[in-house]
Design a protein around this nucleic acid. Sequence first.
DNA 1: ATGAGATGTAAAGATTTTGTAAAGATGCAG
DNA 2: CTGCATCTTTACAAAATCTTTACATCTCAT
Lengths: 225, 225
Amino acid sequence: MNKAEILIIDDEPQIRKLLQINLESNDYKVIQAGTGKEGLMLSASHPPDLILLDIGLPDMSGHKVLEQLRQWYNKPVIILSVQDDESSIVSALDNGATDYLTKPFRTGELLARIRLALRNSQNIQNHSSIVCGDIEMDFIARTVKKHDNEIKLTSTEYNLLALFVKNAGRVLTHQYILKEVWGYGYQSETQYLRVFVNTLRKKMEENPNNPVHIITESGVGYRFR
Amino acid sequence: MNKAEILIIDDEPQIRKLLQINLESNDYKVIQAGTGKEGLMLSASHPPDLILLDIGLPDMSGHKVLEQLRQWYNKPVIILSVQDDESSIVSALDNGATDYLTKPFRTGELLARIRLALRNSQNIQNHSSIVCGDIEMDFIARTVKKHDNEIKLTSTEYNLLALFVKNAGRVLTHQYILKEVWGYGYQSETQYLRVFVNTLRKKMEENPNNPVHIITESGVGYRFR
DNA sequence: ATGAGATGTAAAGATTTTGTAAAGATGCAG
DNA sequence: CTGCATCTTTACAAAATCTTTACATCTCAT
């Protein structure tokens, strides 16, 4: 499982720094924005898994930012605010905020509420599976189906196929694949790759002699489509 | 849509009265319990749509009530507490609470958080029992039946099977299972898992040598189907 | 066309992971 | 205290997976 990415939208650099340190030490990846506009742009170009949004931004109200975000973004948005104002809280919660914390907040509590929000968003929506022709991969269940029939893959086979599917269409070099699936120090073991690509083809392809999914790019690597 | 039913578990009658008035005037149906035991009984006999749970109960800790509730109840549980104690908040949120409000709370905020919780929970179904093929699990009675015959399971066996059933179809890693069933610090005791999976298979599977329910995913974990 | 380097394939061997039985330890009810 | 149920630990068997080897086949520049 990859690190969850959290976008902080807050104009106070010292708050951002504090949050960054705490979040990163809890194994989240942190992205930062100092204005509402910048936050909206960043979240659109590279959607994070959760957004921490300050209500008191210099360029536009956090309420406005939330409203715009919710037109398309459906992952958690936690509001941070110095305003301990009930109408602000109620309005934010009724307009799509996942939670609302008043500054100064306690770090432990914030982290717990982030865990909760991420847990909920993972269970409800993101049953993210990718479909590539007749192949369907479910990354949460860790299963692979071909024509709705489950294919049994070993752990390494699954990791290899997942790498291919996540990079469908692009050529992956032998070295890169070996590094990602087997780890550092295996980058010259190209024979492993041949063996595993072979068994994957036998399991997935209609005709393993004439593969349509795992294409070999001679001298370079493999490509999935 | 019928009125949503809210169960209040709180020992202070004046708080219950205050909540009742506010909730009923917002078109919720209110049920009340003055002790943890009573709350657990009421929620089991007639599951409400949301529970407001006080931490400081006379007969048992609200944390304990929450833990027992979460064995089968997966609709929102909002904690109300006079303790503005970070460790209590974190522990509640990490153990299944939907939200945590410190008394004295503002009614408008509470109502907004209730609306939010109900909105979020609408998509999730609440199962007090689940049927998986020939296996039927009743989370309230804590019993398991195979072809309508009750299977006798120990507490640990039951917890393990419940975890599997609740996550049917997805691969659960050894570490995750150990953490959920045995707790932190047991994450490397994979041998426990082997022993218990073995006994579960002997009790549930038609042919334990060729299990159809608890599938092993070598190198990763197990999967229930 | 040809041959060297790259890739594919099958299968044996090595290693890791998992399954199983059973003995020892623990805790709890009567 | 005793006996029973359960959990923990140990030892070994069985199975699955990974690694290695040997050789077949393909590709492409000459």
